[in-house]
Lab assay of single mutants.
Amino acid sequence: MDEEYDVIVLGTGLTECILSGIMSVNGKKVLHMDRNPYYGGESSSITPLEELYKRFQLLEGPPESMGRGRDWNVDLIPKFLMANGQLVKMLLYTEVTRYLDFKVVEGSFVYKGGKIYKVPSTETEALASNLMGMFEKRRFRKFLVFVANFDENDPKTFEGVDPQTTSMRDVYRKFDLGQDVIDFTGHALALYRTDDYLDQPCLETVNRIKLYSESLARYGKSPYLYPLYGLGELPQGFARLSAIYGGTYMLNKPVDDIIMENGKVVGVKSEGEVARCKQLICDPSYIPDRVRKAGQVIRIICILSHPIKNTNDANSCQIIIPQNQVNRKSDIYVCMISYAHNVAAQGKYIAIASTTVETTDPEKEVEPALELLEPIDQKFVAISDLYEPIDDGCESQVFCSCSYDATTHFETTCNDIKDIYKRMAGTAFDFENMKRKQNDVFGEAEQ
C-alpha cells in the first residue's frame, strides 16, 4: 500500500465507483478503499435476508415463511433508472452494461384523492384515464405537443414562451391547466419533490418532461429500469471497470487518518501504512468535519406477500404521492420490486416508501404510502441524515459526494458526479471521457 497514487477513493457507493471508473479509464492511477467488507456503502443491496434483520437490530431473524435468505437482495436506497437518463448513458458509454441485466418497471402510478391511478404512457391511455376530465385532456394534450416540439435552440418552437424568464406557473396558465393536472405534471412527469420549481424559469421543467417522455418511448410500460439482483450491482459494475483499467481495490480496510500538508491532501493512513495521493474522493462518512447536515430522509422497507392493490398485479412499480394531495411540502414515493428481479424469495415483494422528513414524527409522514401497502409482513425503518460538503474541495483537493436524496431516480446523483468531475479535472464533464479506450493495455477482449 505504500505507494504513490493520482487519486484515492474512500467508500464504494455508486458515486465513488463511477468516479473511480472514469478516473481509471482516463489513465489515472487509482486506489479504492472501503472500511466495509462489502461494496456499495449507503447504496448497497443487503443479502442474505438475515443480514438485513441484523442491521435493523431485529434479533429474532426472519421467519421460515420468508423463504431462503440467499434469495434476497434488499436495497437500502430505493431508486430506478430513467431509461433515457444520465446513468444509463454512463453505463452505455463505459460498457458496464455487459455486467448487468435490466428489466423495465411495469408501471408508474400517481395518488389522487386517496386512490392510485396509472400515469398514462400512451395517448390512448391518456384519453381513457380517469385522472382528468374530457376538456382537461384536450388542454393537457396541447401542452404535451408543445413540450414535444420544444427545442431550446429554435425560438420558432417557443410559442411566445421565453425559456429563460417565463416561469412554469405562467406556462401552466397559458395552457389553462387545472391544479390536479399541474400536480401530476410537476411531480409524476417532471419528478420534482416540491413546488419550488413553479416560480423558476420553465426551461428545466420542460426538459425534465421531455426526458420522461423519451424514456417512456424506449420501452413503453414506464420510463424506469431496474437491474436484476438489486442496485448493489451498479457500484460493483463500475468497480470492475476501474479494476480492468488498473485500479487497486481494498475492502474491509480501516481508514485511520487523512493526511494533510499546508491545507492540501497528501495521503491516507491505514493500519500503520500511508498511501500518498494528489486528490481524494470520499463519501460524507469519511470526513464528518468537512460536511454539513442538509436534512433527513425516511425510508421504510416493507416486505409483502402480495402485489400492491390497484396496480394490475404489477411485479414492479412506482407510486408518487404528490405533496398537495397530503398537505406536505415534499412528495412521498413508493418503489416496489419483487422475486421477478431476483431480489426476493418466490411470491414475495419489496416495497420501499420514502420521503424528505418535515416533522418530528417521520413515520407518521409516510402513513399515506403504508396504507396502500397493507397487509405488511415486516417493516424496517431507516431515518438517514443527508450531508453535503461545506466547500468545493478545490483548495484541499478533498472531494466529497452528497448523500443520496429522496428522489426515486439517479439524475441528482449523476449531477453530483459531473460536478465533482468538473472540480477535479478543471474541465466540464463530457460523456466521451467515459469511453473505454480501444486496444489499450487494460481493455477487455470482446465477449
Rank of each mutant, 00 (worst) to 15 (best):
S330E: 15
V25M: 07
S330R: 10
E125V: 06
N252W: 01
D283G: 09
V119L: 10
K28P: 08
N153I: 01
T408A: 09
A445T: 08
V297T: 12
T408Q: 02
T359N: 00
T165A: 11
F143D: 01
D283E: 00
K364P: 15
R173G: 03
A425V: 09
N252F: 15
T311M: 02
A340P: 00
M82S: 15
A128Y: 15
S213K: 12
G220N: 15
N439R: 13
M424E: 15
S316F: 00
G443A: 12
E446Q: 13
V161T: 12
D183V: 07
L280Q: 04
L372T: 01
K435E: 07
L87R: 04
D257Y: 05
Q57L: 01
E363C: 08
S270T: 10
M82K: 00
G247R: 01
R276G: 13
Q397Y: 15
R436A: 03
T94A: 07
E214W: 02
D419E: 00
K112D: 04
E358W: 10
D385H: 03
N324H: 04
L228I: 00
N415Y: 05
D289F: 10
D176E: 10
D257R: 15
V171F: 03
S330Q: 12
T427E: 15
L216P: 01
P284H: 00
D283H: 08
K293I: 12
L372P: 04
R35H: 12
Q200W: 11
Y38F: 06
I182L: 11
D391G: 08
A351T: 07
I244A: 15
D385A: 09
F184L: 09
V9A: 05
D289K: 09
A294V: 12
R240V: 02
T47P: 04
R290C: 06
E446K: 09
S354T: 12
R299G: 00
H341S: 08
K293R: 11
K418W: 01
A190V: 06
V334I: 11
L100E: 05
C17V: 00
E363A: 04
A353P: 11
A340E: 00
L198V: 14
G85S: 03
G295D: 07
S338A: 10
G267D: 00
E233Q: 06
F146R: 06
I22G: 14
D196C: 07
P37H: 02
K329R: 11
S20I: 01
N26M: 04
Y339R: 15
G347T: 02
N310C: 05
S316E: 04
N312R: 07
Y38L: 04
V25E: 12
G247K: 14
Y333C: 11
I303K: 13
E204V: 07
V74F: 06
E273R: 04
G267W: 00
L234F: 11
F410S: 06
K79E: 03
M134V: 08
K115R: 12
K309E: 10
R299P: 01
E50W: 10
N262D: 10
K142H: 08
A445W: 15
M336G: 12
D377Y: 03
K379S: 04
G21I: 14
L372F: 10
I258N: 07
M82L: 12
R218T: 15
S121P: 09
S285K: 15
V145A: 11
E432W: 12
T408M: 00
A83D: 00
G220R: 03
E214A: 03
A425E: 14
C402Y: 08
G114V: 04
E123K: 13
K210T: 09
A353D: 00
E371A: 12
D183N: 05
I259V: 12
V291L: 05
E432L: 07
V74I: 08
G295S: 12
Y5R: 06
R299F: 10
F238S: 02
E159N: 12
I308K: 12
N324E: 12
Y99D: 08
Q447R: 12
K112S: 13
M336I: 10
N252D: 11
P48H: 00
E106V: 09
M424N: 15
V7G: 03
V291E: 05
I22A: 06
A148E: 00
L231S: 08
K329M: 06
P155M: 04
R240D: 12
T165V: 09
M424K: 05
I332S: 01
C17S: 04
I303T: 08
E95K: 03
F143M: 10
A314Y: 13
I209L: 03
G393Y: 01
C277H: 13
D75N: 10
K174T: 10
P62R: 09
C394H: 07
F56T: 08
D71P: 07
V343W: 15
G426Y: 12
P368S: 09
N36I: 01
K142S: 02
I8V: 09
G41L: 08
